[in-house]
Amino acid sequence: MSTNTSDKSSGEMRTQDRPISAQRISALVLRYVYLLIGSWPRMLELIYWPMFQLILWGFITEHLLTNSSWVAEASGVLIAAVLLWDILFRSQMGYSISFLEEMWSRNLGHLFVSPLRPYELIAGLTCISLLRTLLGVVPATLVAILLYQYSIYEIGLPLIAFFINLLVFGWALGMMITAVILRAGLGAESFAWLAVFAIAPVSAIYYPVSVLPDWLQPVAWAMPPAYIFEGMRMVLFKREFHGEFLAQAMALNILYLTIGVATFLYSFRVARQRGLLLQIGE
């Protein structure tokens, strides 16, 4: 070990500190890219579930095409539903799991003694979530074309609107879940896997909101997925795009995203009050 330490002054080495830095956000994204390319089980896990779901629902669709006039009317409705649901699921998981990776590696303490701001962590996690969602869902959409001759891209421009809204709601859920995990510790990590399934029955993924009991329908309409999936069925069955569904989904997403950011930042403050950033455990 050399004692001839380098002789550049500290100021020359560092860029001026800015309230928000693309370099710091990129550092987080790069950290996850390194993790993904260095771990084939993680890559496999990203692709496995969307593919598994697609194949399962593809066969169900093939069966129902000859047994259900509803499915026969729009043959891709179940496959489109499963692919769109996976966007929400991947987005939320991508955000939450990436945060959990920091807790599992006991790295949060180091991150927060660097100049990284909590909102930059949020920005980094959303970028990673987008990357993970695309890596998981895009191959599944291509397999749907190959196996079932169904292309979700035929939905056209509305698909972009559906994608963005489901992605954003997944981030909002991810922020709320990570806020809980930050407060409660790794003992609460199962929330990352379970929370999104709790809203599945009221998300109108495979059936219309009208199927739900009257008292449950307001719950469904209080969350963006119901508008997205109803909108998707309008496009597939009636070839109509209902802008009002999109507007309501967007308005709700703004609300949930605000709640997500606020709860995460509040939890971060509580974690600093209670010393939780150094006591990562159950």
Binding site: R31, Y34, G38, H110, S114
Partner: peptide
């Protein structure tokens, strides 16, 4: 530090975080 990253990868990430 993240266990599955190499030493170079870990140091690169922190060098970026410190600008």
């Amino acid at each position: 530090l993240p266990q599955r990253l190499t030493v170079r990868q870990n140091l690169t990430v922190y060098a970026m975080l410190y600008g």
